[in-house]
């Protein structure tokens, strides 16, 4: 009996232990609560959009031309236009941004010139998109004589996404431990051999994450393309996949959403919501495929 009572005293909760346990529970539930609170608006937005968009949602809505001054029909030209803008702008900004980041992180020494580049990148990342729009208008539409076109709009979006891609890529590169690089240098590897063998394979998923985030930004921004190449309406062959030429103007989902919700009277109420759903879906589609690529790459990552 004596043994039992000893065990009981030893494991009896002291006041301190009870207090710690309460603190632990409060912390855990506070964190959990915030995590849930973050999900609620997201689910609410999507549910509300779907509910309001329901009457218009159909495959025809996606692949048809707008009719009767956008009051009926689909949004195919805007959908395709957005894909054009996103793909072309990222095809320009992703390679330039990633290569520049590799230079800044792996090669650049701490000189005044490189500090200047850094400063430029940071400041560019903070410039509002409407300023980028004006720059695009001046530089690409007028100075470079691209006119109001897909090229000009894509390049403007590329300039806007570039600094963020550079910053996120640098972060991904910096997360690769220095010891790996030193181990490579010690056995006589050049910087490029080191980057190829160790740095890139271990940062590629982080680099892609940064690029993926810019997809949504490029698809969602209205200001930069409004000044440089997006139009209210552009007639194209319905159902064709490559209806635009690069020097054409195009429609875009973000612009179209703005148009149908504010510029045109008597639009069926569900059409703006359906347009928003398609915009969300497009971003989601591009993100999911990029995330798939990232997962595939991460499975090949070796540590």
């Amino acid at each position: 009996m004596a043994v039992v009572s000893l065990a009981a005293t030893r494991f009896t909760k002291t006041a301190l232990a009870a207090r710690k346990e309460r603190a632990e529970a409060v912390a855990k539930w506070a964190f959990f609560g915030m995590a849930v609170a973050m999900i609620i608006p997201l689910v609410a937005i999507i549910a509300y959009l779907l509910y309001r968009a329901a009457p218009s949602l159909s495959l025809e809505f996606l692949v048809e031309m707008p009719r009767r001054g956008m009051r009926e029909g689909g949004i195919w030209p805007a959908f395709i236009g957005t894909l054009y803008l996103v793909v072309i702008s990222l095809a320009v900004s992703a390679p330039i941004g990633v290569l520049a980041a590799i230079y800044l992180n792996e090669y650049a020494r701490d000189t005044w010139f490189n500090r200047l580049i850094n400063l430029a990148v940071i400041n560019l990342a903070g410039v509002p998109s409407i300023v980028h729009a004006l720059f695009g208008l001046g530089a690409f539409v007028y100075a470079a004589k691209f006119g109001y076109s897909i090229v000009a709009a894509s390049l403007t979006l590329a300039i806007m996404t570039l600094p963020v891609i550079i910053a996120s890529t640098r972060e991904a590169l910096a997360s690769v431990p220095m010891a790996f690089r030193e181990a490579c240098w010690n056995v006589g590897a050049t910087r490029w051999q080191t980057i190829k063998a160790v740095v890139l394979p271990n940062s590629i998923s982080g680099i892609l994450t940064g690029v993926i985030l810019q997809v949504s930004r490029a698809a969602g921004e209205t200001a930069p393309i409004m000044f440089t190449g997006a139009v209210f309406f552009k007639a194209i062959q319905p159902g064709t996949v490559f209806p635009y030429r690069l020097q054409d103007q195009c429609m875009a989902l973000s612009m179209h959403l703005y148009t149908v919700s504010t510029q045109i009277p008597n639009v069926k109420e569900s059409i703006p919501y359906a347009t928003a759903i398609v915009l969300l879906g497009t971003v989601l589609l591009v993100n999911v495929s990029a995330i798939g690529l990232r997962v595939w790459l991460r499975n090949r990552k070796r540590w």
Binding site: A179, F180, C184, N186, V187, G188, A189, N202, K301, R302
Partner: peptide, 28 residues
């Protein structure tokens, strides 16, 4: 780089490179 190959260097902390054991040795 040739110089570094003639002077081998073993760092104080063990650093296996994130690749196979074979590739670790075959890297240089």
């Amino acid at each position: 780089f040739g110089l570094r190959r003639r002077i081998g260097m073993v760092a104080p902390l063990p650093v296996g490179l994130p690749m196979s054991i074979y590739d670790n040795v075959a890297f240089a």
